[in-house]
Design a protein around this nucleic acid. Structure first.
Lengths: 152, 152
DNA sequence: ATTCATGCAAATACTTTGCATCAGC
DNA sequence: GCTGATGCAAAGTATTTGCATGAAT
């Protein structure tokens, strides 16, 4: 797969799709970030300069960028999709259910589990597509461990 | 915690709450099952016999049952909450993104990862609160491995 | 009688879709 | 000019909430 970050117009054209200002803006919003960003956040950024770009265009563009392999998304604790550049590679996220903070993690940490699941259950886990949710160090110090019924 | 499955009225009374036919029905819908069930599915079951029980009552009751420690819920691949009896103990779910099938798993399988996260990142993972999503053995045989951009 | 629980409708958040218009190519 | 892309509004799904009425204790 050619790195489409460098030549989005060409990547689009190869599929009979077109380059537009909206698509450029949306990609820039993601590129300008090191981490992850929700569709809504992308929209807010774009709207700052072009107030009439619609949220549905953002969703449709994100889908196209995904199909092209330019971006990927991961689901956080609240189920909201978070987008990031595919070129940044696979990484796992640890998301805190209390403060919502997310920290990246090398996929190697979860590789052993993935191996086990594959070996013993024939199950091909989507390693990075869903975050690992729990309590971060900061929040668990405040006594969050045993308070919630679903804290298991 | 007293096992409230056996005496829900008492467990409720101890908190100044009341027993109602609706609450009984909803608990029965979950108890009659070995596995997990969504709020919507609980509602459909209850409505078969009592058509005027409202979905919001189901949600409110499920919350109460959770607070009492009678049930717990887990989020599946689509983010939908799946409820199950707390008395069945902690278990992890492997959910297939293709066919939606869910299989239970002893939490012991993910314990090593949980230990690592705790040790190295101080992160207290919610082991059973979110399912592990991926492709089940059946679906990955059909060639699902490399087709999706987010299949990572 | 008091206070909690319910039904109903409306609101929420995220995402998708139908459709007429517009704009890349 | 052909066909894909956009804006807008509306729909869809899962869940929550306000409020008046109704029922358990």
């Amino acid at each position: 797969m050619v790195d489409p970050t460098l030549d989005l117009p060409a990547a689009l054209r190869a599929r009979g799709l077109r380059m537009t200002p909206q698509r450029q803006l949306i990609l820039e919003a993601i590129t300008s970030l090191s981490g992850h960003i929700s569709a809504d956040a992308v929209h807010r950024r774009v709207v700052e300069q072009f107030p009439n770009v619609n949220i549905s265009t953002v969703y449709r563009t994100l889908e196209v960028l995904q199909d092209l392999g330019v971006v990927n998304h991961t689901h956080f604790h609240d189920g909201v999709a978070q987008y990031h550049l595919a070129s940044e590679g696979l990484h796992q996220h640890l998301v805190c259910r209390e403060c919502g903070s997310a920290r990246e993690l090398d996929v190697r940490v979860v590789q052993p589990l993935a191996e086990t699941l594959k070996q013993e259950y024939g199950f091909e886990a989507d390693i990075a597509h869903f975050a690992i949710v729990g309590l971060c160090a900061g929040c668990s110090h405040k006594g969050g461990q045993t308070s919630h019924s679903h804290g298991a």
